[in-house]
């Protein structure tokens, strides 16, 4: 293989009309995607009187950093005025184990269901798929009762369990479908070599799951980091995630809305997923499956 760490569709070319069209499409698409972001950024640097003038596309006439400072350290949620920084540590405490566990369970499920065909596997998959279509809010009441029974309600492990539960359908689906494209000969060869359930999983399957692990991480990091409802209901007072504060800042109904602070707070809270998206690139590599067969 010529260059395994670089992506490749068709054969590499130099600057041709086709390539120019390609970049033109990408730049145009990027501009479309960035338009709302532009509005958010300029709004976050404007003062409130300027925002109320109503020209949403104009650059700020007088740049102010105050909304950013307020969002991070001063915005009030009830009587506490400490901005969104308070919940950040809690958000990490919830996100890291939840993301890790839900991806691990999803990968095991997908692998077991694809290759081992365990008894009742179809039932598991069918129930998970169907369950994924019911609005989360319907689950709240029964889950509160169940977690209370096992003393997990309003605890850190409790909120992690909740995230693992709700991540399971999509994670299972993701890995099951990814492994469906893995040549079955690979699995057979590993079994002839005497590999057991866990050996094949850790030595063969996981190493070739790079791109799908990234997709899974994108889904879970974003979903769990931005979760508001479960954090509010299940985490308990000592572990409230940052989004509860974000919500308190953004979502007031009968008070003055500080749009500039809202925009700044939203961009700040999105930083963690954005960093994950950006650095995830190196795992988006091609051709590992082929290498595994040959290697």
């Amino acid at each position: 293989m010529s260059d395994p760490i670089h992506p490749r569709g068709a054969k590499p070319r130099h600057l041709t009309p086709g390539r120019i069209g390609l970049y033109a499409f990408l730049v145009f698409a990027a501009a479309f995607f960035l338009l709302p972001f532009y509005v958010m950024v300029v709004t976050s640097f404007k003062t409130m009187p300027e925002i109320q003038q109503g020209n949403i596309f104009s650059l700020p006439s007088k740049l102010t950093l105050a909304p950013w400072v307020t969002a991070w350290a001063k915005a009030c949620t009830g009587v506490n005025c400490e901005g969104i920084r308070v919940g950040v540590l809690n958000s990490f405490k919830i996100m890291i184990p939840s993301t890790f566990l839900s991806i691990l369970l999803g990968a095991i499920n997908g692998y077991a269901l694809s290759f081992w065909r365990p008894r009742g596997g179809n039932l598991i998959f069918a129930v998970l798929l169907m369950g994924a279509f019911i609005p989360y809010q319907v689950y709240l009441y029964p889950l509160v009762r169940m977690l209370s029974m096992v003393s997990l309600y309003n605890t850190l492990p409790g909120i992690i369990v909740v995230h693992v539960i709700f991540g399971m359908p999509v994670m299972t689906l993701l890995f099951r479908n990814y492994y469906a494209a893995v040549p079955v000969d690979l699995f057979k060869a590993a079994r002839i070599d005497g590999g057991g359930f866990w050996t094949i999983f850790t030595r063969v399957m996981l190493p070739m799951s790079g791109p799908i692990l990234v997709v899974a991480a994108i889904l879970q990091v974003t979903g769990i980091w931005n979760d508001f409802l479960f954090g509010l209901i299940f985490a308990g007072r000592d572990h409230l995630p940052m989004t509860v504060e974000l919500n308190n800042i953004v979502n007031t109904t009968t008070g003055t809305k500080a749009y500039n602070v809202n925009m700044a707070a939203t961009i700040l809270t999105a930083m963690v997923p954005l960093i994950v998206y950006f650095v995830s690139g190196r795992w988006f590599v091609r051709g590992i499956a082929a290498g595994a067969v040959k290697g």
């Binding site: 995607f33 509005v39 958010m40 709004t43 809202n262």
Partner: peptide
């Protein structure tokens, strides 16, 4: 580019929806 195409997914829709 990948990050630009993905970023809307990272942001709370309560605010991007307003925008």
């Amino acid at each position: 580019f990948r990050t630009i195409f993905l970023y809307p997914y990272a942001m709370s829709f309560i605010v991007t929806g307003l925008v």
